[in-house]
Simulated scan of single mutants.
Amino acid sequence: METKIKIGISACLLGENVRYDGQNALARHITGPLAEYLDFYPICPEVGCGMGVPREPVRLVGTLENNKLMGRESGKDWTGIMRTWAEKTLPQIEEKQLCGFIFKAKSPSSGMCRIKIYPEEGGQPNSYAGTGLFAGMLMERYPLLPVEDEGRLHDIVLRGNFIERLFVEHRWNKMLASGRNMKNIIDFHSRHKMLIRSHDVTLYRALGKLVGEGKHMGLEKLFESYHALMSTALAKKPTIKKNVDVLMHIMGYFKKLLTTDEKKECLELIGNYKTNLLPLIVPVTLMNHYVRKYDVAYLNEQYYLNPHPLELKLRNHA
């Protein structure tokens, strides 16, 4: 990679001692293997808005629809203070061209989902479906930005999908930097066709139609609409069924080139993947072999066959 992918992250996950107890929550499954490819931009909203270290822990109080960020013992209301700080800080996400954000799970300020909300009169939580105050503001302002929390990233499927989206977003930003024109978006879409299809075939077709009609709608609207639709598609997890569809589609490009034995081998490996006997990396590796052997230029440019570095091993278990 020429440049690393810029990504926001809760500061405690990088090992910074900014938690309420003066400790950190170093996430080695994130900072280890991904550090070679990601440029982390740490943010701690609690320290950022003026809370000290160590400090009184906070929690969400109220209802799912209407809650506040309050001190557990003192009852101090930090909602307005954090909102004011966040409004000044959030524009940096766009200014720094961050391609995603990793939140601290279960945090009342940074948790993206399943946050406890306590009743005002005290007692046990009345909801476990809240969103951290800062995380909620970030996701509302940048609804297309790939986001996850470090807890969910232990799941290999969620992890693979998130990392894949980061790489696509990174390539999208690089394409924008080279100019918003029809040539660039046609090339971008052409190289991502198979990848998008593996997430949602309906939206894949809609994106193709959008690019085909793009010259009649104006570049600004075209790029905005494409990014929104693409992000929606990529947010949907690939499944074995979807990948089998793409693999069979790729195999169609070789139908006049493969020998009888080669076709048999392809179908056998795809079938074993379909029945969960082999990980995705096996049939994809074979497809890459035939792309090189038969010099199929169109497939050689498809990011589906090489969406991220092999060293991350994201397709070795799916």
Score class of each variant (00 low, 15 high):
1 M>V: 02
4 K>H: 04
11 A>M: 02
19 R>A: 07
20 Y>T: 08
22 G>Y: 05
23 Q>P: 01
27 A>T: 13
30 I>H: 01
32 G>R: 10
33 P>Y: 11
33 P>G: 06
35 A>N: 13
35 A>Y: 03
35 A>R: 10
40 F>I: 14
43 I>C: 04
43 I>Q: 04
44 C>E: 06
45 P>F: 14
45 P>Y: 09
48 G>M: 12
50 G>N: 03
51 M>Q: 11
52 G>V: 02
52 G>N: 11
52 G>F: 01
53 V>N: 04
53 V>D: 04
55 R>N: 13
56 E>L: 08
57 P>A: 06
58 V>N: 00
59 R>I: 07
65 E>Q: 15
68 K>M: 12
70 M>H: 11
73 E>A: 07
73 E>C: 04
74 S>V: 11
74 S>D: 06
75 G>Y: 14
76 K>D: 09
79 T>K: 08
84 T>V: 05
87 E>T: 11
87 E>S: 09
88 K>T: 10
89 T>S: 04
90 L>V: 11
95 E>W: 03
98 L>D: 02
99 C>Y: 00
100 G>P: 01
105 A>H: 04
107 S>L: 05
111 G>E: 07
112 M>N: 08
115 I>G: 12
117 I>N: 04
119 P>H: 15
124 Q>M: 14
129 A>H: 14
130 G>M: 13
131 T>H: 06
132 G>E: 01
133 L>S: 03
137 M>I: 06
137 M>Y: 05
138 L>E: 00
140 E>Y: 01
143 P>T: 14
144 L>A: 12
151 G>H: 05
153 L>M: 12
155 D>M: 07
157 V>P: 10
158 L>Y: 06
160 G>D: 02
160 G>I: 01
169 E>D: 02
170 H>K: 00
170 H>A: 00
171 R>W: 00
173 N>K: 13
173 N>G: 02
173 N>E: 09
176 L>F: 07
183 K>A: 10
183 K>G: 11
184 N>L: 04
187 D>F: 06
189 H>L: 05
190 S>W: 06
190 S>A: 14
192 H>M: 05
193 K>H: 03
194 M>Q: 14
197 R>H: 09
201 V>K: 08
202 T>Q: 09
205 R>A: 11
205 R>T: 10
207 L>A: 13
209 K>H: 12
211 V>T: 08
211 V>F: 04
214 G>N: 10
216 H>Y: 07
216 H>F: 05
220 E>D: 11
221 K>R: 12
224 E>V: 09
225 S>A: 14
226 Y>H: 12
227 H>M: 04
228 A>F: 10
232 T>M: 06
235 A>S: 15
238 P>Y: 11
243 N>D: 10
244 V>F: 09
247 L>V: 04
250 I>S: 03
250 I>L: 08
250 I>G: 03
252 G>T: 12
252 G>A: 09
256 K>M: 08
260 T>H: 09
266 C>P: 09
270 I>P: 00
271 G>A: 08
272 N>H: 13
272 N>P: 01
272 N>V: 02
273 Y>Q: 01
274 K>V: 08
279 P>D: 03
280 L>Y: 05
292 R>P: 01
292 R>A: 06
294 Y>W: 14
294 Y>F: 15
295 D>V: 13
297 A>I: 13
298 Y>P: 02
302 Q>E: 05
303 Y>K: 02
308 H>F: 09
309 P>Y: 00
313 K>R: 12
313 K>I: 03
313 K>T: 05
316 N>H: 14
318 A>S: 06
